[in-house]
């Protein structure tokens, strides 16, 4: 059984990694070599593509812009979603089910639908071309998702824990932060990662709500198309660099995800 499990995992990881390897492979090649023919590794490795990204201000500032709105979005989403998810998982209240479904409907609205109204809304309130505008716009799909994932995890925590804590004299905020949050760590880790991920890779809204000052890396990437065709090498290098912060995030939340549920060991 163990061997079969590891084999499944290995085969799947291979399937995942080959295209990623191809991206890394491409980022170390010159455009001539990429288009010249099939080579399994760079025959004349070059760092030129990375040099472009780390020396041209438009590239590295767009990278920082992305990081700033994504982290803002992650913090906002978790802050508002945690209490709401608790309310949905523990209480019945007027219109709760409809409220929950309405939140979900915002996750399903295709961003293309909202492009133009968003552009005008954020221009009207004077937030156009700022990271906070993108962070708020991404809340549209990340907050419902966060509420939803967290609600699932909170529901699997037995209600007796809350009741015992209240009998022991805990107030709600103290109980929530000290006892409850540590118990749903896998959920918080997964939620944080998903908020980061969906915000980081989103292109349409981020591109529409920014022009110069807050331009994100995803829209900078679409500008590698020039008169001489697509600059595949730089695009690949930018893609590789765009993977790094996500790897850092998943590395930090891995303990939360992998830790599991402490309850059974008491």
């Amino acid at each position: 059984m163990r061997v079969r499990k590891s084999l499944v995992m290995l085969v799947y990881l291979l399937f995942v990694l080959v295209p990623i390897y191809w991206l890394v492979n491409m980022s170390f090649k010159s455009n001539r070599e990429i288009l010249g023919g099939l080579t399994l590794w760079p025959t004349t490795p070059t760092l030129d593509n990375y040099r472009v990204i780390f020396t041209e201000p438009t590239w590295y500032t767009s990278y920082l812009n992305s990081l700033s709105y994504v982290s803002m979005n992650m913090v906002i989403s978790l802050m508002v979603a945690l209490p709401a998810a608790y309310a949905f998982s523990r209480y019945r209240f007027l219109g709760d089910k409809h409220m929950f479904f309405w939140l979900l409907t915002n996750r399903m609205a295709p961003p293309a639908v909202f492009l133009l109204p968003f552009f005008q809304l954020y221009s009207a309130v004077g937030l156009f071309d700022t990271p906070i505008a993108v962070a708020l716009a991404h809340c549209l799909f990340n907050v419902p998702l966060a509420v939803w994932i967290l609600e699932g995890f909170m529901s699997s925590v037995p209600k007796e824990i809350d009741e015992t804590a209240y009998i022991d004299g805990y107030t709600f905020p103290k109980f929530f932060v000290r006892i409850f949050l540590p118990m749903i760590r896998p959920g918080i880790g997964v939620t944080a990662f998903f908020c980061f991920m969906f915000s980081w890779v989103e292109l349409l809204l981020a591109r529409t709500l920014t022009s110069v000052d807050a331009k994100p890396i995803v829209s900078q990437m679409t500008r590698t198309v020039s008169a001489s065709g697509i600059d595949w090498g730089v695009l690949a290098a930018a893609g590789v660099v765009a993977l790094l912060p996500g790897i850092a995030v998943i590395y930090f939340v891995r303990n939360h995800v992998a830790k599991g549920f402490a309850l059974g060991r008491v």
Binding site: V16, I20, M197, V201, A236, I247
Partner: peptide, 19 residues
């Protein structure tokens, strides 16, 4: 395996198409 699994999710969508 967590990190390797999540790699495809982190690739910006236009780059996914390009790959």
């Amino acid at each position: 395996s967590l990190i390797l699994l999540s790699l495809p999710l982190l690739v910006p969508w236009n780059v996914v198409g390009t790959i």
